[in-house]
């Protein structure tokens, strides 16, 4: 891969987006116990079963001994101050970290009881099942139609042109974009507004019918109206997909998710029902964060 390290870039973006966590972290070493998560990290009908996950970049440990279940068809939000490892952790779920040479993932990560990082495991197939939407809308410099049709084409999901048309239309409908673009499917995607581009990226992800959709701060580059539109969309999608969303906006987490996980310096501090996390957090770090003492 080229020299641009995707994780580093996205972290750098976060630094611009939010203030850096204050330096008074020293006493918290005593508060956080590695591998210990308060609340309800486990679920019965787990889609992802993640146990003792550690991620390191060279000598730096980015994720420290995290265990978590992601249930079927739930929307789970990852929140926490910048650099807490929530994006890194998300990227483990469809192995987007593979392209970074120095990134090392250990522990057990299972999707439907199959190991994600098994050497025999096929990453292409995995990603076809676990789609991803990125922080910055990243449509390909092609037409709107080709953007959505890209996934089905490479996976050979459509045998006929009419099948493909149907998939594109359905995906765009689900992404709430059909009405806006149905007359200009041949226009290039880069000419759309930011919000439309992001919904197009969601449509593109839906088009391969994944089981899980990972969203890495999908609204951070969008204005409030576009954000509202995307959030609406997430609510509709939660009926058919498992959604994992990383967000730096606590309000957004509160609005869209069933469960919320709070990350802090590579630790998973607390996981619980969203309303519980925001109304009566169990861990004092969580409380500090959601009351705005830092973050």
């Amino acid at each position: 891969m080229n020299t641009i390290n995707p994780a580093v870039t996205s972290e750098a973006d976060q630094y611009q987006a939010e203030p850096v966590a204050p330096v008074r972290e020293q006493p918290e070493e005593t508060i956080i116990e590695e591998g210990k998560t308060v609340g309800r990290p486990f679920a019965d009908n787990a889609k992802f079963k993640l146990r003792d996950v550690n991620v390191s970049y060279g000598d730096t440990r980015a994720i420290k001994n995290i265990s978590l279940d992601v249930a079927k068809n739930e929307v789970i939000a990852f929140i926490g101050p910048s650099g807490c490892g929530k994006s890194t952790f998300l990227r483990c779920l469809n192995r987007m970290n593979d392209s970074i040479e120095i990134c090392k993932v250990t522990g057990s990560l299972q999707l439907d009881d199959q190991d994600i990082y098994d050497r025999r495991r096929d990453v292409v197939e995995l990603r076809a099942r676990v789609g991803m939407v990125f922080q910055k809308p990243n449509p390909f410099p092609k037409s709107i139609y080709d953007n959505v049709a890209y996934g089905p084409r490479i996976h050979g999901l459509a045998n006929r042109k009419s099948d493909l048309d149907e998939i594109v239309e359905n995906s765009l409908r689900k992404a709430g974009l059909w009405g806006e673009v149905k007359d200009r499917l041949d226009a290039t995607a880069t000419g759309m507004s930011g919000g439309q581009q992001q919904r197009l990226c969601i449509a593109r992800a839906i088009a391969v019918s994944p089981e899980v959709i990972l969203m890495d701060e999908p609204c951070s580059a969008l204005d409030p109206i576009a954000t509202a539109r995307v959030e609406e969309l997430m609510a509709e999608m939660s009926e058919s997909y498992t959604i994992v969303i990383v967000t730096h906006s606590m309000q957004q987490a509160a609005r869209v998710s069933n469960r919320t996980a709070y990350f802090h310096l590579g630790h998973l501090v607390e996981v619980n029902e969203t309303n519980k996390v925001f109304t009566s957090p169990e861990h004092e770090l969580t409380e500090s964060y959601i009351t705005g003492r830092f973050g």
Partner: peptide
């Protein structure tokens, strides 16, 4: 020229399961 193509473009395609 290839390196000037943003990484996000690569990620977008890889995340869809492209080789």
């Amino acid at each position: 020229v290839i390196n000037a193509v943003p990484q996000t473009m690569r990620d977008g395609s890889l995340a869809l399961g492209a080789t």
